[in-house]
Amino acid sequence: MDDHDHDHPQYSELSEMDARVRALETLLTEKGLVDRAALDAVVERYEKEVGPHNGAQVVAKAWTDAEYRRWLLEDADAAIASLGHVGRQGEHMVALENTPERHNMVVCTLCSCYPWPVLGLPPVWYKSPAYRSKVVIDPRGVLADFGVSLPEGTQIKVWDSTAEMRYLVIPVRPEGTDGMSEGQLAELVTRDSMIGTGLVHAPSGAAR
């Protein structure tokens, strides 16, 4: 045998992080503070149930229902909860409406506060020091990194999230989507457009 690995039995190995996290779970389980089923339920919730599709539903409703839009801008907690998206971290939601005059972008300069109930967990770039510092100093540069350019005259406002206050950007409804249903519109709304690092585009082939 030229591969010496075949000559002796193979045993397992854990990465340092894997072992450390298993250790935390062991200690917390021994104290009755967590159990496997509850942890699995939390992971399931954040991997499958909450995600940008929730926010997209909110945005599409705001685009098509003027009464809902007004409610969302006045009391985002209640308007979002009415669609079944409820936060568990005691946070308040604020909806920020993008217009041709003003473009809103969201960051958390402290850590990674993010509107979980409507967007799920944040992407890696949102949590990176690179984004968190650059968006404050050079929001147009960040937009360029995302392939977005806005007219000179559009004012850009950056909102800093906290544990208590989370923001959902309501992007500008693209032209050429007049005949579309709420469900069709929701499919156009991207995660990045609700953070402010993207725009929503009409489907190619839509009437202009």
Partner: peptide, 20 residues
């Protein structure tokens, strides 16, 4: 900026420490 990643957790231990 880091490359875009659509995965919520990159490894099971990340999901576990988050859930705890």
């Amino acid at each position: 900026l880091p490359p875009p990643s659509e995965q919520v957790f990159a490894a099971p231990w990340q999901a576990q420490v988050f859930a705890m």
